[in-house]
Design a binder for these strands. Structure first.
Lengths: 149, 149
DNA sequence: CATTTTGGTTTCATAATGCAACCAAAATTC
DNA sequence: GAATTTTGGTTGCATTATGAAACCAAAATG
């Protein structure tokens, strides 16, 4: 496992989130999980990750409450992995990554997958707003740190 | 450098974003850049990253257009690193990570840094909406893949 | 102008990862 | 229902990435 030093700035929520996810593979696994991948072998094929590493990362994500195992069929020996409610709260992270990719990493006209509202088919996007609902720009925000950084 | 195999599903914008960022350290560097860290030694202190690795990652992020070097002082030999406009578009990813952390990784009442609107001091949040501005839930979305996955 | 700091590079030890072989249990095929 | 294939791993070893420390030149500081 990536025995990553806990990030300095433990008071910082995004730092903690990154710690909770753990490492790069784990982030990719979570991404696949949002893509409805559930089985060991499907994660493995999708990511090209070594099986021993995948075993480890799935176990860690389950330990951290981001994934959970659900028994498949009647036998309890075989399981699938799915996002917990907490794991599903990483959805905005995935949408944000998607939006960045759409904006910067595709040629105009190049085809890509698209996230839409089920009912209407309208594309989904994500905005930064104040708590009272006004959209604002990154430049209008400021980070208030807690004392003794 | 992490010679990561290009992710399968190259048509997927979030996969491309993750490829563009590159690896875990790079993501942490970007996070620090949003925290107004600009100098080599400050990244190094903040992250506890080995200097040779930091050199490599900064160079890669610059190559990919996420960071840029700006000469500091009158000498052009010394540079600082700052987010490009493209790099700044990763802001929602950071806000999403922050929001997840605030929700799940702090005890009630536990102190953390806070992102607010400069002018009003109101907390910043991020919502998933349809293109026409209605807030929606993750469960109401569906991913439309391009053919031949 | 002497000293310290910055922004690196190089080398080497160590840790993480990838690969292939192997395996038992479950699922599938005949 | 026996044989075969697939699944979901584990183990051991080779390879690769990372971390630590030493070192260095240029810039900044005293």
């Amino acid at each position: 496992m990536v025995a990553r030093r806990r990030l300095k700035g433990d008071y910082c929520p995004s730092a903690r989130s990154l710690d909770a996810i753990g490492d790069w593979w784990s982030l990719l696994i979570v991404r696949d999980a949002f893509d409805d991948i559930r089985r060991f072998s499907d994660f493995q094929k999708s990511l090209g990750i070594a099986k021993n590493i995948l075993t480890d990362r799935l176990r860690t994500l389950v330990d951290r409450g981001i994934l959970e195992t659900v028994p498949v069929g009647e036998a309890k020996a075989r399981v699938e992995y799915q996002l917990t409610p907490m794991g599903r709260d990483l959805f905005p992270v995935m949408v944000a990554l998607r939006q960045f990719g759409e904006r910067h990493l595709f040629e105009p006209g190049e085809e890509h997958s698209l996230l839409v509202e089920k009912e209407t088919g309208l594309p989904v996007r994500l905005d930064i707003r104040t708590q009272d609902g006004r959209p604002i720009d990154a430049a209008e925000t400021v980070l208030i740190k807690v004392p003794e950084d």
